[in-house]
Each structure stands twice: as C-alpha cells, then as structure tokens.
Amino acid sequence: MNIYVSNLSFSVQDEDLKEFFAPYGEVTSAKVIINRETGRSRGFGFVEMTDEAASQKAIAELDGKTVESRSISVSVAKPKDDRSSRNGDSSGFNNRNSYNENRY
C-alpha cells in the first residue's frame, strides 16, 4: 500500500521516514519529496508497505502524531489520476480559453 505523509519537518530524510513506519511492518520504500530548485524537502513524502493490515495500523497510529515538533498527517495515497487539478480545470494550460487564442 502507498501511504502519503505530510507536514514533515524539513530536516526529515528518506531513512527517517522509513524508521517511523518500520515498527508497523516491512517498508519497501520511503521517499521525502525534494524541491528541484532549492534541494530542500517540500514537507511531504510517500511510504510503501507490503502488508495492507500493517499499513492501515500505521496510518491509524501515526496520523496526528508529533514528529520533530510537527503534527504529521498520514493517509492512503491517491493515484495521480484521482487528484483534480489545482484550478479545477482538467484541460491544463492550453485550453480553449487560453491567452494566446483570445489575444487577436
């Protein structure tokens, strides 16, 4: 199961994230997402665990837990396709209301 973890301290590394979940079962991967421009953590990450029951227990017990003075949020990660765009328009930047088409 893929797990989404947010509100992480900027000092949390991949290995730290893995250690948070290891007591609940086998962690196949743990990745803190890094900002490409700054090289700093973006404050969230993903954890993959093999056992669904262990994953559910980890989510239930770690959600809201304080880690490095921050209350983390832990939930089942949603696939990219299930998330809506930020502005609610799924057609992206080059839609029919594009600046370039309405310019002339």
Results as ranks from 00 to 15, higher is better:
K65P: 03
S75Q: 12
D81K: 15
F93P: 02
K80V: 11
K80R: 14
E48P: 02
G43V: 04
R83G: 10
V67W: 10
N94F: 13
D89F: 08
S98A: 11
S71G: 14
S98L: 06
T50V: 11
T38G: 01
R96G: 14
I72N: 11
S85G: 12
E52G: 00
F44L: 11
K78R: 13
G39Y: 02
K57D: 13
G64T: 02
S69H: 13
S69A: 15
S91I: 01
D51R: 03
Q56L: 14
Q56F: 02
S85T: 15
F93C: 07
N94A: 09
D81S: 14
T66S: 15
K80C: 06
S85I: 11
K65N: 07
D81L: 12
S84N: 11
G45I: 08
S85A: 15
V47Y: 00
D81R: 12
Y99F: 10
R70D: 08
N94Y: 09
G45P: 01
A54N: 02
L62I: 08
G39H: 08
N97L: 06
N95S: 09
K65E: 07
E101S: 12
R86N: 06
S55T: 07
M49C: 10
S71L: 09
S98R: 10
A53I: 01
V47C: 00
